[in-house]
C-alpha cells in the first residue's frame, strides 16, 4: 500500500535514485557475444580474401572497402578478448578453475589468438580462435547447468558454434515464479 503510494508519487515527482551498486549488474553473462564476434573475424578474413582476388586494381573503392573490413576485424577480435576476459575474471571462481584446470590456459590462448587475428590475415588463426571460444562457451554452460549442442551459424561464415539448449527453460521459470 505504502509502496504503491510512493511509486505513484515517484511517477509524479521523480524521486532521486540512489544506487545500491553491484560490481555485476544482475549477473548477466553470456559467451554468445564472444562467439558472434569470433564468427565476424572469420567472415571479415573471408571477405578480405575475396575482395583481394576479385579486384585487379587498388582503386579508391577497393581501399575503402578493404579498410572497412580491416577495421571490423580489429574491433571484433578485441571484442572477443574483452567478452571472454569479463566472464573469466568476474563470473568464474576458484571452484570452476579447480573443476576445469584447462580454463586459465584456454583464456590465455584466446587472448593470444585474438591479438594474432588483429595483426594478420591467416584464416587458420581466426578458425582456431572460434574453436577455442566455443570450448570456453561449452564450459560456461556446463557450469550454469545448461545443456549445449553444436550447430552451424545460420549466416555466413556458416561455421560450427556451441549454443545453449534453452527449450523448456521458460516452463521451469514459470514454475518458480508461480
Amino acid at each position: 500500500m505504502m509502496h504503491k503510494l510512493f511509486k505513484y508519487l515517484d511517477g509524479k515527482l521523480g524521486f532521486e535514485k540512489a544506487s545500491a551498486h553491484c560490481d555485476i549488474p544482475c549477473g548477466i553473462y553470456d559467451p554468445r557475444s564472444a562467439q558472434m564476434a569470433a564468427l565476424t573475424v572469420v567472415r571479415m578474413m573471408d571477405l578480405m580474401k575475396a575482395l583481394n582476388e576479385k579486384s585487379g586494381t587498388m582503386d579508391l573503392a577497393y581501399v575503402n572497402t578493404m579498410s572497412r573490413y580491416i577495421a571490423s576485424k580489429e574491433e571484433h577480435a578485441e571484442m572477443v578478448k574483452r567478452e571472454i576476459r569479463v566472464i573469466w575474471g568476474d563470473f568464474m571462481k576458484k571452484e570452476h578453475f579447480d573443476k576445469y584446470p584447462e580454463l586459465h590456459g584456454l583464456v590465455h590462448e584466446i587472448m593470444q589468438l585474438g591479438s594474432q587475428a588483429r595483426q594478420g590475415v591467416d584464416i587458420a588463426i581466426a578458425e582456431t580462435l572460434l574453436k577455442k571460444v566455443n570450448r570456453f562457451a561449452e564450459i560456461f554452460w556446463e557450469i550454469k547447468g545448461v545443456k549445449t549442442h553444436c550447430v552451424v551459424s545460420p549466416y555466413l561464415p556458416e561455421r560450427l558454434v556451441i549454443m545453449p539448449i534453452l527449450d523448456g527453460m521458460e516452463k521451469e521459470h514459470l514454475k518458480k515464479a508461480s
Partner: peptide, 21 residues
C-alpha cells in the same frame, strides 16, 4: 527529509531494487 528510490541489488535482502527510503 528526502525520499529516494533504490536501484540495484547490493542492499538485498534489506532493500531491493525499486524500494524507497
Amino acid at each position: 527529509l528526502k525520499i529516494i528510490r533504490i536501484t540495484g541489488k547490493s542492499m538485498e535482502p534489506l532493500y531491493r531494487d525499486g524500494d524507497y527510503a
